[in-house]
Design a binder for these strands. Structure first.
Lengths: 77, 77
DNA sequence: TTCAATGGTAAGTGTATTCTTACCGTAAGT
DNA sequence: ACTTACGGTAAGAATACACTTACCATTGAA
């Protein structure tokens, strides 16, 4: 399941209904984690690397700024 | 709100009841993300840096293995 | 222009999650 | 010993969440 996939294909790969898949995809799309393009009557989705990058950037800041210094403090270093 | 805090103090800082706070703390404690010590009639909680370290380690593996290679592939690098 | 394929949306349902109320136990002060 | 402060736990209520069924819109093929 690498690269672009249609909703129907995804739906076949999970034990839930197609509408449920659509609803998940909508949320992922709103969060910019996936993007989609029309292809005839079907709609093809793919992961959006930039979306994941921004999640990672956020996490890096989180760990870097807050926790590292906090850990040092606690450990008395 | 840095360093150790009592349950009552925490409770005052959130718009939910004290028992709700206790329940959250229990879960965080089970997950080793916080630790607590008795101090008279009150109980003082603090973040547990080691717990967060293991979360970070997990995330690093996640990003490192799967996503970096995927991103390269998508970008055609 | 009719039909089949594909997928989005709305409304409702079941379940999981998270909260509150009520109660109990323990520690410290008087 | 009595009382107050503080917090954990149990049980039930409220809310949020993920799913299904039913329906509609759009595209492409016959």
């Amino acid at each position: 399941m690498k690269g672009p996939v249609s909703v129907g294909t995804l739906s076949g790969a999970f034990p839930i209904s197609r509408p449920a898949i659509s609803q998940h995809l909508r949320i992922l799309k709103d969060a910019r984690l996936v993007s989609d393009t029309a292809a005839g009557t079907r709609r093809v989705y793919q992961l959006n690397p930039e979306g994941f990058e921004s999640v990672r950037a956020y996490l890096d800041r989180f760990w870097g700024n807050s926790l590292h210094s906090f850990k040092k403090k606690v450990e008395g270093k």
